[in-house]
Amino acid sequence: MTTNLMKSIPVIVAGALGRMGAEVIKAVHASKSCHLVGAIETAKEKEGNDVGLELGLEALELPLTTDFEGCLCAISQSSSSSGTGSSPVLVDFTHPSVVYEHTRAAIAYGIHPVIGTTGLSSEEINDLIEFSEKASIGGAIIPNFSVGMVLLQQAAAAAARFYDHVELTELHHNMKADAPSGTCIKTAEFLEELGKDFNHPQIEENESLVGSRGGLRESGLRIHSVRLPGLVAHQEVLFGAEGETYTLRHDTIDRSAYMPGVLLVIRKVESLGGVVYGLERIL
């Protein structure tokens, strides 16, 4: 093993052929600070195929596998036996139905989880934080890897001090499995940290179509979700007051916008004492 490779961070990508997973593979391959050691995908017909060739890159001599735990176990054992270099990192962009088990398994194998899959409940996030702290394994659950989105969330939290009426809308492609998005939930949580209630009703509302006013949180915040082909990821926070509105919006045009944030978290996650929630905890 060369000195450069020993200093480089070994990365496993789960959801390797998905929209985000493919971007992560390309970013890791191009990076000087990390290198790819595992590519996990659920498509059994792709088992054993070279992940680089599947994504239109050069041959990376790394076969795709559908065996999630087997891959983690092998890389964990390899890392432990070598005793040198950086600890391995799992980057997960898979599905809400499996992300909790994936994260917990990574921690159990001593692999640092970097989770971009949304859909975890508050209870699951808290459980993973507690489990990781007991295991002393740093990790990160990041609803959105965009620095611009972090700036929007901070601006929204600042504006919420002065506005009592606000609604949130998130727009994504129609292949997104969960609604509302984890990013939009995180934005709502930023606003709710003020400890105030929002949108006190002025009249008795009646929905002739159930859900037309959006999802209602305990704080009074409403979240609207849009799913359409052609969209990537977009969020709007609309404040209203007497005689004015104030709008904050962030648009992701291409998934490559997330990659600087992904690589930043990969580089920093080993130094954390447990799992953190949100990119703002790492920036």
Score class of each variant (00 low, 15 high):
Ala22Asp: 03
Val13Glu: 07
Glu45Trp: 04
Gly85Val: 09
Ile75Gln: 03
Gln77Thr: 13
Ser86Ile: 05
Glu45Lys: 04
Leu55Trp: 11
Ser79Trp: 11
Leu55Glu: 03
Gly15Trp: 01
Glu47Phe: 05
Ala39Asn: 10
Gly38His: 03
Glu41Ala: 14
Ser8Thr: 05
Leu60Tyr: 08
His35Ala: 01
Leu72Met: 07
Ala39Tyr: 15
Ala22Ser: 14
Ala22Tyr: 08
Thr66Asp: 06
Ala22Leu: 00
Ala27Ser: 10
Ser33Lys: 15
Ser80Thr: 14
Gly52Leu: 02
Gly21Tyr: 15
Gly85Thr: 13
Gln77Ile: 05
Arg19Ile: 15
Thr42Met: 06
Lys44Thr: 15
Leu57Glu: 08
Ser76Val: 12
Glu47Asp: 01
Cys34Asn: 14
Val24Leu: 07
Arg19Thr: 13
Gly85Phe: 13
Val11Lys: 10
Met6Glu: 14
Ser81Met: 14
Ile75Val: 15
Lys7Tyr: 12
Asn49Phe: 14
Val24Gln: 08
Val28Arg: 04
Glu41Met: 04
Ser33Cys: 07
Gly83Phe: 15
Ser79Cys: 13
Phe68Trp: 12
Cys34Asp: 10
Glu54His: 00
Gly70Ile: 09
Phe68Ile: 12
Ser33Arg: 09
Cys71Asp: 08
Ile12Pro: 04
Leu64Arg: 06
Ala27Arg: 04
Cys73Asp: 14
Ser80His: 15
Ile25Asn: 09
Gly52Asn: 08
Asn49Ile: 00
Ser79Gln: 14
Glu69Cys: 02
Ser81Thr: 08
Lys46Val: 05
Leu17His: 06
His29Asp: 12
Glu54Leu: 07
Glu69Ala: 01
Cys73Lys: 15
Cys34Gln: 13
Gly38Gln: 01
Cys73Ala: 15
Leu17Arg: 12
Glu45Thr: 05
Gly21Leu: 13
Cys73Phe: 12
Ile40Gln: 13
Thr42Trp: 08
Lys32Met: 05
Leu62Asn: 04
Ala74Asp: 02
Leu72Ala: 04
Glu45Leu: 00
Met20Gly: 03
Glu61Asp: 12
Gly83Glu: 11
Met20Arg: 00
Glu41Gln: 12
Gly85Tyr: 13
Lys44Cys: 06
Lys26Ile: 09
Glu61Leu: 10
His29Pro: 01
Glu58Ala: 09
Gly38Trp: 00
Leu60Arg: 06
Ala16Pro: 01
Ser78Ile: 00
Phe68Gly: 02
Ala14Gly: 06
Val28Glu: 02
Ala27Thr: 06
Ala74Cys: 01
Glu61Ala: 12
Glu61Val: 10
Gly18Arg: 03
Gln77His: 10
His35Pro: 04
Leu55Ile: 09
Lys26Cys: 07
Leu53Thr: 13
Met6His: 12
Met6Pro: 06
Leu17Thr: 09
Gln77Asp: 14
Ile25His: 13
Gly15Phe: 04
Gly85Cys: 04
Val13Tyr: 01
Cys71Gln: 10
Thr66Tyr: 07
Val24Pro: 03
Ser31Val: 10
Cys73Glu: 15
Leu57Asp: 05
